[in-house]
């Protein structure tokens, strides 16, 4: 890969108790591109994704080895501020998870916890983020209504806006469309295309068409291993590995 890498993993292994979920995964994620992780259920793609912002730390029995570099710094190095790491590496979840607060408060939450207090500043961030997430026009008149009243697709875009509001470098998306209908999915996919101008996006998806549509690079995972990784066009048209080909052509999965 010729582009400059923002994340590099070297030989990452991960165990839940004694069950190994990732096996020597080494890959690079290029900056300002969309990288898709595909593979059958349980292959470890979500686990890998959650390594990038150390959200696996929340689970008690997780053990991890190998190194993950973000901007050439090891995110597991002692002294790493995990809070700052997560500010840099935002995440959008499988199921939209807006907080039970108003739309405004949801977006303002991130800047607030990072110390922005000025009201006009906050207003500006909220409006920009909602614009960026292509939600502004739909909610501009009801910013102070509950976020739980939005439709699923709107909720997911709100979660994206919430992530954008803290200006991350990388956005992780864990099957962001799996709970949405096709129209809402299309909107999110368009959004991803716009986002890559400013951000690096890593998306886990079950849906191969989606991977083909939105991503520049694709990694195929199987049973905790990264089988193959490269430009999306090449992975889909000339896969090097037989496993990849079988999966992409729908022979298993």
């Amino acid at each position: 890969m010729s582009e400059s890498a923002i994340i590099t993993t070297n030989n990452v292994n991960l165990w839940y108790s004694d069950k190994q979920a990732l096996e020597s995964v080494s890959m690079t994620i290029p900056k300002n591109k969309v990288t898709a992780l595909i593979g059958p259920s349980g292959c470890g793609k979500s686990t890998l994704l959650r390594c990038f912002n150390r959200l696996n730390d929340l689970i008690d029995c997780v053990k991890i080895s190998g190194e993950i570099l973000l901007d050439n710094e090891n995110i597991h190095a002692t002294g790493t501020d995990v809070v700052m790491l997560r500010k840099k590496v935002g995440m959008v979840f499988q199921k939209p998870n807006p907080f039970p607060k108003s739309i405004y408060e949801n977006v303002a939450y991130g800047p607030r916890v990072h110390g922005v207090k000025d009201k006009t500043e906050l207003d500006k961030i909220v409006e920009q983020s909602l614009h960026h997430a292509a939600l502004w026009d739909e909610v501009r008149d009801r910013l102070h209504d509950s976020a739980l009243g939005l439709s699923g697709g709107q909720q997911q875009r709100l979660c994206i806006a919430r992530t954008l509001a803290v200006e991350p470098e990388v956005i992780l998306m864990d099957e962001p469309c799996s709970a949405l209908d096709p129209i809402a999915t299309a909107k999110i996919e368009n959004l991803i295309n716009l986002l890559k101008q400013d951000y690096t996006v890593i998306i886990v998806t079950h849906n191969m068409q989606q991977a083909a549509r939105v991503s520049d690079y694709t990694g195929f995972m199987y049973l905790g291993k990264l089988i193959e990784c490269g430009k999306t066009v090449e992975i889909f048209e000339h896969p090097k590995e037989e496993l990849t080909e079988n999966y992409i052509t729908g022979r298993f999965g």
Partner: peptide, 27 residues
């Protein structure tokens, strides 16, 4: 309180106390 709230807040870079005081307890 659904685990998603907690993860959502931590993923934005809120620390544990901010997550507790601004998301978990209000919820």
């Amino acid at each position: 309180v659904p685990r998603e709230y907690k993860e959502g807040s931590l993923a934005i870079g809120a620390n544990r106390w901010q997550t507790i005081s601004r998301v978990l307890v209000p919820a």
